[in-house]
Amino acid sequence: MNSSLVSKLVIITVIMFGFGYALVPLYEAFCKVTGFGGKTDIIQEAVAGSVEISDRDVAVTFTSHTNTNLPWEFKPITRALDVKIGEVQEALFYVKNYSDRPITGMATFNVTPPRAGFHFKKTECFCFSKQVLQPGEEQEMAVRFMLDSEMPEDVHELTLSYTFFDNEKYAGQ
């Protein structure tokens, strides 16, 4: 009698250990569905192009940072844009590797206010993949995006922020 109860309780323990790990994809899914944490959405260029353009304007500001471990310069070329709802726009960023070795970087992003993030749709972004810069190499990197018609009425301005991280540690993956 004891041993069957003990094994049930051990199974609960193991399941709860797994649940801790299950929180990782659950959280990811939760953020994707709700836009929590300023996560953005991805759509196809063709779909984005076929959306009707309204005359409502939203002021989009671009900011950028590099992690202290990454000897790159990273700054927005396009500092701000007035974007109409439904219109596909492009913003450019400047990146330069100041070190004497090739470095793999990866950019993370978020949108403020977070509730606007879900309605910020990217069709193309340098943040989708790892970027390798040779020593001294400089590049312009682009993000193409649109704002969908569900964008909350009271959002008149939003900020898209990027942070470049050194991805060497994870380069093998």
């Binding site: 323990t13 193991v14 709860m16 250990f17 797994g18 649940f19 801790g20 790990y21 929180l23 990782v24 992690n67 990866m106 993370t108 942070t163 991280f165 050194d166 991805n167 540690k169 994870y170 093998g172 993956q173």
Partner: peptide, 27 residues
């Protein structure tokens, strides 16, 4: 307690085994 054990295990693998549960550099 197992959930906490899971959290610190993720920390441990983030620190030493190349996972990126919490490190934005790896997503």
């Amino acid at each position: 307690m197992p959930v906490f054990a899971g959290a610190v295990t993720m920390l441990l693998t983030d620190r030493h085994f190349g996972t990126a549960f919490f490190n934005p550099a790896g997503g």
